[in-house]
Measured scan of single mutants.
Amino acid sequence: KWEEIAERLREEFNINPEEAREAVEKAGGNEEEARRIVKK
Rank of each mutant, 00 (worst) to 15 (best):
R10Q: 10
A27N: 01
E11S: 14
R10H: 05
E3A: 12
E7Q: 15
K40H: 12
F13K: 02
N30L: 07
E31A: 08
R10C: 08
V38P: 02
E12N: 03
K39Q: 15
L9D: 01
K40Y: 14
P17F: 15
G29S: 02
K26V: 08
V38H: 02
G28D: 11
R10Y: 06
P17Q: 13
A20Q: 01
I5C: 02
I5S: 02
E31F: 13
L9H: 00
R36Y: 05
E4T: 08
A34K: 00
I15L: 11
G29Y: 05
A34R: 00
A27K: 00
V24I: 12
G28S: 10
R10A: 12
E25D: 09
A34V: 02
G28N: 14
K1N: 14
K1D: 13
L9I: 10
E11T: 14
W2L: 07
V38D: 00
A20V: 03
R35F: 05
P17N: 10
A6I: 15
K26I: 09
G29F: 05
W2E: 05
I5V: 09
E4L: 14
V38G: 03
I15K: 02
N16S: 15
R10L: 08
I15N: 02
A6P: 01
R36I: 10
K26F: 09
I5P: 00
K39A: 14
R8Y: 04
R8L: 08
E12D: 09
A6T: 07
L9W: 01
N30D: 12
A20G: 02
A6H: 03
E22R: 14
R36W: 05
V38L: 15
A20W: 03
K26C: 06
P17C: 13
I37R: 07
A34H: 00
E19G: 04
R10G: 07
E32N: 07
K40I: 14
I5D: 00
N16Y: 06
W2D: 04
V38A: 11
E3T: 12
E4Y: 10
E12L: 10
E11A: 15
F13W: 04
E19A: 13
N16K: 11
K40V: 13
E33S: 07
E18W: 15
R8K: 10
A23D: 00
E4G: 09
E11M: 15
E19T: 10
E18V: 10
R35L: 05
E25N: 09
A23S: 04
R21D: 06
G28H: 14
E18F: 11
I15R: 02
E7L: 15
G28W: 11
I5R: 02
L9S: 01
N16P: 14
W2R: 05
A34N: 00
R21A: 10
R36E: 10
E32Q: 11
L9P: 00
A34L: 02
E4Q: 13
E25A: 15
E12F: 07
N16F: 07
R35S: 03
R21P: 02
W2M: 07
E32A: 11
R10W: 11
A27H: 01
A23R: 01
R35Y: 04
N14Y: 06
E18Y: 11
K40M: 15
E19F: 12
V24D: 00
E12A: 06
E22T: 10
R8H: 05
G28M: 14
G28Y: 10
K1W: 12
R36Q: 10
E31T: 04
K40W: 08
F13L: 07
V24C: 05
E31R: 04
F13S: 03
E33L: 13
R10F: 05
E32I: 09
P17K: 14
E33A: 10
A27S: 08
W2Y: 08
N16E: 12
K1T: 15
E7Y: 07
I15S: 03
E12I: 06
E33I: 10
E22W: 15
K26A: 12
A27M: 03
A6D: 01
E25W: 14
K1A: 15
E12P: 00
A23F: 05
N14A: 07
E18Q: 11
A20I: 06
N30P: 00
R21F: 12
R36P: 01
R10N: 05
E19N: 06
P17D: 07
E32C: 09
A23T: 04
N14F: 08
E25R: 14
V24G: 01
A20N: 02
K26D: 03
E31H: 08
I15Q: 03
E22L: 15
N14K: 12
F13T: 04
E12H: 05
K1P: 11
A20Y: 02
E33N: 06
E32F: 12
E19S: 10
E31I: 10
I5F: 04
E7N: 14
E18S: 11
I15C: 09
A34M: 02
N16G: 13
E33T: 09
E3L: 13
W2V: 05
E25P: 01
E4D: 11
N30G: 04
E11N: 14
I5M: 11
F13H: 04
F13Y: 10
E7S: 11
A6F: 07
E7P: 01
A6S: 07
K1V: 14
P17A: 15
E4A: 15
K40C: 12
E3Y: 11
R21I: 11
N30M: 06
A23M: 06
I5Y: 03
N14L: 08
E25K: 12
E25G: 07
I15H: 02
I37G: 03
A20L: 03
K39H: 09
N30I: 10
N16V: 06
E22N: 13
A27Y: 00
R21Y: 13
